[in-house]
């Protein structure tokens, strides 16, 4: 520890940081609660109690937004299974795995808007994907990927999975490269086959990173899909791909209703805190059960 002559010095070091965080995080987190009880026109407005919340909770668009975020959660297990499977394949037995890693990481290097525009064109009704499956005689796969309200949210999910798996593979692989090679060799010498090695030796050791990545992805599906949705469908057709972030964005910009947007922010924030507490509780319980 560094001792300073003046006990005041450490505070000088942290002051700029505290000021910055208070401005960017502290101020808004307090204000969304206040704004959510007001009918804001311009910068402030009269206190209206819970009316903003009542308005939102009765609005079908808001329900669509929550449902769609929930549907996107289905991407989490898919992303994890694909990432783990490919990472293990690369780690265990492939010559030139570095080259594969470089290639498979490319989707993540492309920014979300670029990915969205390119995949959106691939999935146009008369675009390359549908033309190809039609030519192959798999007409049933030639869906109206972007125009059908029942399909569009799953198209967005495909786009999300396509890009995020690139990162998942690299993350899982970097954990695998740190694994204890001796246990693996011992298992192999004891006659464990590939499936047994994967299920009983490798995956248990990856448990921590898989749990961590699951949490990151759950958070992402609830609160970090704005760019995907905005670029692929802007929430449409109708409100079939509306999500919470886009709902807040539209309430603030298109409808100029900051009070309502704040009420949604508050609900998202509270839901978020609850969700994270539950996740941490589950993780801790599974840890302690493991030790017992």
């Amino acid at each position: 520890m560094i001792r300073t002559r003046n006990a005041f010095v450490p505070y000088l070091f942290v002051a700029p940081c505290v000021a910055l965080l208070a401005f960017i995080f502290g101020y808004p987190l307090v204000k969304i609660f206040e704004f959510s009880f007001r009918q804001i026109r311009g910068f402030t407005g009269p206190f209206v109690g819970l009316r903003n919340y009542q308005l939102i909770l009765n609005q079908p668009t808001f329900h669509d937004a929550i449902t769609n975020n929930a549907k996107l959660l289905l991407a989490v297990p898919i992303i994890i299974v694909i990432s783990v499977l490919i990472a293990i394949v690369l780690f265990e037995r492939v010559r030139g795995w570095r080259v594969y890693r470089t290639i498979l990481f490319v989707p993540y290097i492309l920014s979300v808007p670029i990915v969205a525009v390119v995949l959106k064109n691939i999935f146009q009704f008369n675009g390359p994907f549908n033309e190809t499956v039609r030519a192959l005689g798999m007409e049933f796969l030639a869906l109206d990927w972007l125009g059908d309200p029942n399909v569009a949210i799953w198209t967005i999910m495909i786009v999300v999975i396509w890009r995020e798996v690139g990162f998942g593979i690299v993350l899982m692989l970097s954990r695998l490269l740190g694994l204890n090679a001796e246990t693996l060799e011992a298992a192999q010498l004891d006659g464990a086959n590939w499936r047994q090695r994967v299920l009983y030796v490798i995956v248990p050791q990856m448990r921590g990173i898989i749990e961590f990545y699951a949490v990151v992805n759950i958070i992402g599906m609830v609160a970090a899909v704005f760019a995907y949705v905005f670029m692929v469908t802007k929430g449409g057709p109708g409100t079939s791909t509306q999500v919470m972030e886009l709902y807040i964005f539209n309430m603030l910009t298109r409808n100029a209703l900051p009070g309502i947007a704040s009420a949604v922010s508050v609900m998202l924030f509270i839901a978020f805190v609850i969700m994270i507490l539950i996740l941490f509780f589950l993780l801790r319980r599974s840890r302690s059960r493991e030790l017992a």
Binding site: V14, C17, V18, L21, I24, F25, Y27, P28, L29, K31, I32, F35, I40, F43, I219, V222, A223, A224, F226, M244, E245, I248, F249, L252, P258, A261, S262, S265, V266, L268, F269, F272, I276
Partner: peptide, 23 residues
Amino acid sequence: LLALSTSLMVIPPVVLVVPLFLF
């Protein structure tokens, strides 16, 4: 301070934008 700052890592920017925008 460290605990607070660390927990801010999971706050999604979208819940901050309304007051920041007006400000």
